[in-house]
Nucleic acid binder design. Structure first.
Lengths: 284, 284
DNA sequence: ATCATTGCATAATGGATTCTTATGCCATGC
DNA sequence: GCATGGCATAAGAATCCATTATGCAATGAT
């Protein structure tokens, strides 16, 4: 007989974190402040460890709380999926979505566009920046929902993550000279893909030369297609005229990275949950 | 303010399905039969639709119930993950795990072996069969937990699924003759990979010839390495001496398939949940 | 330094929820 | 025709949970 963790306790937990206080969480959830206090206490009793430390007007998370935070958000996402599956209401609202520059590709935009087409009442504003800027923007509530690279050691507001393995892309018409340094085309630093290309080459003892630094993926793809050099792409960004390159071309495999969906449950509208569900269904 | 779906209602729901009756579910959950009845009624009130129809000693699921079943199991899996995260107990027991023949590769076995090494009290018996046989075995409770190909139209006991995109593998030393029929190495029918290879070739108007039919992946890989022909592999099964082949080699892309983890919540021990969690963390 | 303010904890009460016991109903099978 | 197994329903009892009222600690302003 497994332990059932009441959903409303988890909801209270993440709401307190999202809104930074018991009193504000109580307002948002339509309860009084002592009710939230008791919910947190009951949750701590179930978990068997303290979770939130009230400290100088700030909420501090224990280690257990950080672990629970990620899992609780996953569980609430499914809860909201269930609710949405049977609600059958017209979604509407205004959503500010952030995607990393190196992932703002046709695939993601297509998925968002499809959702927007299916829910005409939802206005979506997509903003494309570096992952770390996206996380700052989510914290500051300038964005409602972001996809960003997820640090392996965890980070607040992570709802779901999935692995993406980048690979080398080269023009279909070109063979790499194994004697010459690898001609690298990449995004400007800081960039997870650039990091992975360099560390893979470094580990393999293969020299390289950066030939082009370009902000958007389309530019890199065009340059690769023109035969200028190689870059790291993902299955979603591999375009016509390009092929994967691998050990056969003298290029070492690239380490996988982890993309995460982040949002604050207490801040996201039903339309936001709908979009999250729709995107994750296509991504996983 | 979103709807919180009480975890215990979902637990009752899947337990009734898993054990095929209210009375048996009541025993398993340590409640009386009317308590389970009422839980189900409350869940139906939240969902807004009838879920289970008692019919001739059998439980029949409505369409809504089938939808809910998958999501409820996902939510309970996370619930049990949370419980396991803070329980910190020695796992022990006996687990019968099923993996599809075309997925019983080193990667999966390694992951299972790692878990077994970390939890010495758990004895694991891995059984490798065709996906459809695995599902029958799960239904008959000859297996506790299976990975199997998930039909797109849903199927009972699906807890989590993820996409796998197969690709063509060819010996690194060989070029395919574009004029000749594609030399196919494959598993015996029924096989999802074989289906995908044939339908991709058929759609592309490319003729093929089956050169070898072999039950296990290792045999196919050896044959591909020897230069006999091509087969469909996944990232986890791609071995040394092999390379991906793609449109550049005259081979059309293969359709992705969906692998699912299936188990009956009411039947799976804590050790089983631990293994599920451990495997999914490495797969997603 | 003092006092008001903000924010969480705690106690006690009332109400709502949910379990149990008791019982009824409807199949199926002998 | 009657017993049996299995779910539904009703009513009482126990539990759970939210509220009001109040206390306490920390912060910040005068």
């Amino acid at each position: 007989m497994p332990t059932n963790i009441p959903t409303d306790l988890l909801r209270a937990f993440v709401t307190v974190i999202d809104l930074g206080g018991y009193t504000r969480a109580a307002e948002a959830l339509g309860r009084t402040q002592p009710a939230i206090s008791q919910k947190l206490r009951r949750l701590e009793a179930i978990i068997g460890q303290p979770l939130l430390l009230a400290e100088a007007g700030q909420i501090r998370l224990t280690d257990a709380a950080r672990t629970l935070d990620t899992l609780a958000r996953q569980m609430l996402r499914i809860n909201d999926d269930i609710a949405a599956s049977f609600a059958d209401e017209r979604l509407s609202g205004w959503l500010r979505v952030g995607v990393p520059t190196d992932f703002s590709n046709a695939f993601m935009l297509q998925a968002i566009a499809d959702f927007a087409a299916a829910h005409r009442g939802v206005r979506i504003e997509v903003s494309s920046r570096a992952s770390r800027d996206l996380r700052t923007a989510l914290a500051a509530e300038e964005l409602d929902m972001i996809f960003a690279i997820a640090p392996e050691d965890g980070m607040p507001w992570l709802v779901q993550s999935f692995r993406v393995t980048p690979f080398w892309a080269i023009s279909a018409a070109v063979q790499l000279d194994p004697a010459a340094p690898v001609p690298l085309l990449r995004h400007p630093d800081p960039c997870e893909y650039a990091d992975r290309m360099r560390s893979a080459l470094r580990d393999a003892g293969r020299p390289w030369r950066t030939l082009l630094v370009c902000n958007d993926v389309e530019g890199l793809v065009a340059a690769v297609r023109a035969g200028l050099g190689v870059t790291a792409l993902t299955p979603a960004t591999l375009a016509a005229g390009l092929r994967r390159a691998d050990v056969g071309d003298g290029l070492p495999p690239l380490a996988p990275l982890r993309i995460g969906l982040f949002y604050k449950h207490a801040r996201l509208s039903r339309a936001g949950h709908g979009l999250a569900q729709s995107l994750l269904a296509r991504l996983i």
